[in-house]
Amino acid sequence: MPKLKLEDLQKIKEKVRRETVLREGAGKAKITVHMGTCGIAAGARKIMSVILEEIEKRDVKDIIVTTSGCAGLCSREPMITVELLGKAPVKYVDLTEDKMRRIFEEHVLNGKIVKEYMLAIGSERVD
């Protein structure tokens, strides 16, 4: 077995910590904004701001907001992934501020997937 390095252990620890936070109800929803070069150029930072605005405006405590690198789907940016506790992650593409507000209200707060804005299943590998 290859020797585990300290940094590997730290990575595993961090991963476990994040997943535990989600599982233990400190976060009942997790939103990941893809913040790679293409995402940034397409307006991902504004999408992040809309999410933060919604959180400030409302009484929500249990949402985790995070960012990740490029998702390999540059033409469909800005893009987010919404993960509700115990449910499969859903990717939304070609976002605008208005679409983001609707996803926040309907999916993040009320658990109803906004199908029109969802990335069609199976199209993840298209570049």
Binding site: V33, R45, M48, L52, V65, T67
Partner: peptide, 8 residues
């Protein structure tokens, strides 16, 4: 900065 700090 808000995006970086909140996201990481």
């Amino acid at each position: 900065l808000m995006t970086l700090i909140i996201g990481n």
